[in-house]
Design a protein around this nucleic acid. Structure first.
Length: 740
RNA sequence: GGGCGGUUAGCUCAGUUGGUAGAGCGCGUCAUUGACGUUGACGAUGUCAGAGGUUCAAGUCCUCUACCGCCCACCA
């Protein structure tokens, strides 16, 4: 018997070695599999892209879950003989990365990015991301992920940059990307816009002021924005104010002296709320902006990009709004303009989820993707949409899920997806940060930042215009713009490469449920538009990993469980199993060390099963005996049923069931019943009984290793090399081979 | 304000199309020192949140209620 089996299983001494063998074999690469006859050129295809982890990050439990699930899918399909490709990559994660590097430089050198300048700052980011890249990649490998590293991609490398430029240009030419002066979410802390989806709303109890505005009482939580308010708005049907007419002018005394206010009647007013009258601040409130647009009213900026009051605030000009607020209230009070203050008003505060900066809406000239504009869909391969048909991006996104061309698991996320689409607005894609894909637009004659640049003064590349008088747009693109191209930009698009033809659309996108809007929806949008097809046929969403108490893991709370520490303690296979067994898609999971421990025990059990089997069969191996006893034949039948069930579960994305069934079977049927029974047959049984029992043990061991391989690749591979004479690694053994 | 989930054994959760309630951990009793104590055998524990309905049959389908959680939203 192999000496390794005399020792207990030691994941530490095994995992790194086994991974090296896999990598060296080249079998992570489907081209090698075809070359070596593992898969054939016309085999079915199974492809996935790895949701790229942030380049600056370290592995967390969420990554471990996705790696465990995706690797299980990939290994199963590879063993089933499909041409199987899993594409790795990392994400430049624009805002997150820039923010990390900025903080680092501030801490170490006490310098801001502006002190360094754009070029130098970006150089620093590059250095940082290169170092950081290797960390995350090595951590991914430790989970056992069978990714084809020869195809690794980066969301911000030259190839992806080309894809971004081509996509941008096409969308611009089709009128789906436009530049416009609109109200956007401005983060004064990071000095950039952010999209609606990146905003987090928090409830906060704060004072609510009822102010005298001429003959009216208006209510506001933000008196510091009210300096320029010169429109007073009410509902046209509000009888309380029926003697005021739309457009009527009213003279009144306001914060900094007498003003002329204009009455506006608009249906957006809620008669039940406050006094049913409000003044508007179109520059700093999205709802007010819309009212102003509807009636073509003036808009004035009150607060600058840094959160300081502008000259319109009179004596308060130059002060930060936070500091100025109490003084403004004081002045209003001294003028007798404050009617009452409700101290218990619960309002909402918008913050940038990345930086924590409090959002101040601002009107800015930005780039947007138009989601409600019709365009001509070219080369459609989408069911139910013809080439040349006019659709909007929003319709497209809805259609492919509604028609079932994309299946979302668990199913109820469809409803969440549709609900989101109902509320979808144009997507602001320009960011004022430096790290990211620079907007491929060039200007001359100083029209940078102007809303109405003429075509002569603005070029969208490719091609990049020549000449010194052209200046590139300073802004970069929202990181999700390039992420939206990920399934095909990784395969060579915009070139029609062999990879693209073979592996796109991908089979499945497996990711966290929190990414359904950010990423999943945007991939559907981009792929539908640019390729007339879907990016993937199935979306599998896993839930959030929580700690034992059910709290979300986070760095700041310090309650995060570090996967690498867990791998060292319990082995990667145990970590993988504990993240898959009994965890249905879409629901949150509490992880505890007890669970990890349980699967370490399971690995040990398996190891000992192998030891028992190998020490109870002849050294030279076993042949199928002429006579198989009835009970052994029955056991075999039972196992064949299990194989069927597990295979079906794997095909249907029921990993939590497949893995649990295997655990149950191996421990409580194979070990507890079949092995126990075989002891008698081997020691006291007839020759027929003995040979039959030995053969069954050996057969079951071999095939259990196969079935378990997608979930616990390291230990099964190790046992395979110890117990089997095969020259090929288990990872490319044939799954479906009938039990002989 | 709109939407989506969850509520099953002490704890963590399964339960795929409706067909006599399951697993792991924990607990109890016993066994076993030549596969494994990271063990084995046996066992206890549930009006499947509550109410109503459909059905021969409901944890599973429908309606309502309660509590918990999440997402979306321009109530100033």
């Amino acid at each position: 018997m192999n000496e390794k089996l005399l020792q207990p299983y030691n994941p530490k001494n095994t995992e790194e070695r086994v991974y090296a063998v896999w990598e060296k074999s080249g079998f992570f690469n489907p081209d090698v599999c075809i070359e070596k006859g593992i898969a054939s050129r016309n085999s079915q295809v199974f492809s996935i892209v790895l949701p790229p982890p942030n380049v600056t990050g370290v592995l967390h439990m969420g990554h471990s879950v996705m790696l465990a699930l995706q690797d299980a899918m990939v290994r199963f399909n590879r063993m089933a003989g499909k041409k199987t490709l899993w594409v790795p990559g990392v994400d430049h994660a624009a805002i997150a990365t820039q923010s990390v590097v900025e903080k680092k430089i501030l801490k170490e050198e006490d310098k801001s990015r502006h002190d360094l300048g754009r070029e130098e700052f970006l150089r620093r980011v590059d250095i940082f991301t290169k170092e950081s890249h290797d960390t995350i990649v090595n951590q991914v490998k430790r989970m056992g992920a069978s990714l084809d590293w020869s195809r690794e991609a980066f969301t911000l490398d030259e190839k992806r940059n080309r894809a971004v430029r081509v996509a941008f240009k096409k969308m611009y030419d089709d009128g789906l990307i436009y530049r416009g002066l609109k109200i956007v979410n401005w983060d004064p802390k990071m000095q950039t816009t952010v999209s609606d989806d990146e905003i987090e709303w928090e409830e906060e109890t704060r004072p609510f002021y009822y102010l005298k505005y001429g003959p009216f009482t208006i209510a506001t939580a933000r008196p510091e924005t009210k300096f320029g308010d010169k429109y007073v708005v009410m509902h046209p049907k509000d009888k309380r104010y029926s003697n005021y007419l739309h457009g009527q002018k009213i003279e009144l005394d306001w914060i900094n002296g007498p003003i002329t206010a204009t009455v506006i009647k608009d249906n957006a007013i809620d008669m039940e709320f406050g006094t049913g009258v409000m003044t508007i601040t179109p520059w700093h409130d999205a709802a007010d902006f819309d009212i102003a647009e509807r009636h073509q009213l003036d808009k004035e900026q009150i607060i600058d990009d840094k959160g300081k009051l502008l000259p319109i605030a009179g004596e308060f000009a130059g002060q930060h709004i936070k500091k100025a607020r109490p003084m403004i209230v004081e002045k209003l009070q001294s003028k007798g303009l404050v009617e009452k203050i409700d101290e218990k008003y619960v309002g909402r505060i918008a913050t940038n989820s990345r930086s924590g900066g409090i959002i101040e809406p601002q009107i800015k000239c930005q780039w947007f993707v138009a989601v409600n504009k019709k365009f001509k869909l070219e080369h459609s391969k989408i069911e139910g949409l013809k080439s040349g048909q006019q659709v909007t991006l929003r319709e497209l996104m809805k259609h492919v899920v509604e028609s079932g061309e994309i299946r979302i698991i668990p199913e109820h996320f469809q409803k969440i997806y549709f609900h989101w689409i109902e509320n979808l607005h144009d997507w602001c894609i320009s960011r004022q940060i430096w790290y990211g894909h620079r907007i491929p637009v060039w200007y001359k004659n100083e029209v940078v930042g102007a809303a109405n640049a003429s075509p002569e003064d603005m070029r969208v590349c490719p091609p990049t215009p020549l000449g010194d008088d052209w200046k590139q747009d300073e802004d970069t693109l929202d990181t999700w713009f390039s992420s939206g191209l990920w399934t095909f930009s990784t395969l060579g698009w915009p070139d029609e490469t062999e990879d693209l033809k073979t592996y796109h659309p991908t089979a499945v996108l497996e990711t966290g449920q929190d990414l359904i809007f950010f990423w999943v929806a945007r991939m559907i949008l981009m792929t539908g538009y640019l390729r007339g097809e879907v990016p993937f046929k199935t979306v599998y969403l896993h839930g959030i990993v929580r700690d034992k108490e059910g709290k979300k893991m986070s760095k700041s709370k310090g309650n995060g469980v570090d996967p690498i520490t867990m791998i060292e303690k319990y082995g990667a296979d145990a970590v993988r199993m504990s993240l898959i067994v009994g965890w249905g898609p879409g629901s949150d999971m509490k992880i505890s060390e007890e669970k990890l421990k349980a699967y370490k025990h399971f690995a040990n059990k398996l190891w000992n099963i192998a030891r028992f089997v190998m020490s109870n069969i002849p050294e030279e191996g076993v042949e199928k005996p002429k006579t198989v006893t009835k009970e052994n034949a029955l056991s075999l039948q039972e196992f064949e049923m299990l194989t069927e069930e597990v295979s079906l579960d794997l095909r249907e994305y029921r990993f939590h069931l497949a893995s649990e069934k295997l655990y149950q079977y191996i421990w409580h049927t194979f070990a507890d019943i079949i092995i126990e029974r075989s002891k008698k047959s081997i020691t006291d049984g007839s020759d027929v009984e003995k040979l039959s029992a030995q053969w069954l043990l050996y057969t079951l061991l071999r095939d259990c290793l196969k079935l378990l391989h997608p979930f616990m690749p390291f230990i099964t591979e190790e046992l395979w090399s110890i117990t089997q004479k095969s020259k090929l690694p288990l990872m490319v053994e044939s799954w479906t081979k009938k039990i002989s």
